[in-house]
Nucleic acid binder design. Structure first.
Lengths: 180, 180
DNA sequence: GGGTACATGTAATCAGTTACATGATTTA
DNA sequence: TAAATCATGTAACTGATTACATGTACCC
């Protein structure tokens, strides 16, 4: 049940990672999408919470197509380009993942905080970090206004990102003010 | 300049990852540490911001020793066990890393929020997430009181973790209350 | 017609994860 | 003395990152 069945009845044994589901999810929203467009979209939307590398973005849809979760059609005008569309199996797989609970807790994974942990002087870090987080917050707030009509999922996720940016800003600005 | 020189003059070309620096940092605090002790310490301290797998914890000190950043001495009583101590090169390397600025911004990497992004119903996620974050917060607050005498780096990092837990708790509890 | 940025991928390497294996030590 | 847990690692796989390669379109 944790896996999908191809239409010829053979089970696919590929493991789906968060990367897979991001591709599936975006493919559902944009049928006939290309890898390049996925890259653009990811950078514009989920990149603040999940980064995906170029070559993953080209490899993953191909894997998903092999597993029958996407269809791939290659356009042959000059340089080949492949368009991907989600299949019913793909949708089922994505919906199953969405319906499952989550057990893994998030990790902070902030290099600056890791350095603070090991005794780096906080003030220099705090000054640059503060600026960077303020810039990101501004971006997100802009996004929120411009994309006012978007679906509620992305909007809710954006609220989370904004909340954490504000927390970071408060944290680093306290550190920047404190005398050693 | 980005790399260290072994005492025989040959440059080490190994790339140091955050994992490497976590090992170096803990090794500096506990000379003669074993891999197993590193594992315990990591799980007790940095694991909320950076998780390291068992086999990494055994492989990484060995690599660092090869590069001359740690010394390894094997104890031969029955089953072999290896104790690691930081070298002057290792300390230089660690200090250089601590002194460098950080460019990479952190990512949220929260699977629950990713699911919300793609349209998962927020309320079921919110309920379990809320409990989990509340439990973590309690842990951290306990740590803060018990470990009151600890160095300031870990304490500051803990404050960051606590702040983000509180943010998560507010976020998910708002979502849990909201009707759809 | 030369440069720059956009578009589209591949190859090779490396880090991280999962699973396995087993010797010591304590406890019931 | 059997079971459980602590302690100590190894092997194999797979996902992620870096670096490379090149066609196409537009602009100056």
């Amino acid at each position: 049940m944790e896996c999908c069945a191809g239409q010829d009845g053979k089970l696919c044994e590929m493991r789906l990672t968060p990367t897979s589901y991001i591709v599936l999810g975006l493919a559902r929203w944009s049928p006939g999408v290309t890898a390049y467009e996925l890259e653009r979209t990811i950078n514009a939307t989920v990149s603040h919470m999940w980064t995906i590398q170029r070559s993953q973005i080209y490899r993953e849809p191909a894997r998903l197509a092999e597993a029958g979760l996407l269809t791939a059609e290659t356009e042959g005008d000059g340089r080949t380009r492949t368009r991907f569309t989600i299949t019913p199996d793909g949708e089922r797989s994505l919906d199953a993942w969405l319906a499952e609970g989550v057990q893994d807790m998030p990790q902070l994974r902030d290099l600056a905080i890791l350095k603070v942990f090991f005794g780096a002087g906080p003030q220099a870090l705090a000054r640059t970090r503060l600026l960077a987080h303020q810039a990101r917050l501004k971006e997100y707030e802009l996004l929120r206004e411009v994309g006012g009509l978007a679906q509620s999922g992305p909007r809710l996720a954006l609220e989370a990102a904004i909340a954490h940016e504000r927390t970071s800003i408060r944290y680093w600005s306290d550190l920047a003010k404190s005398s050693s």
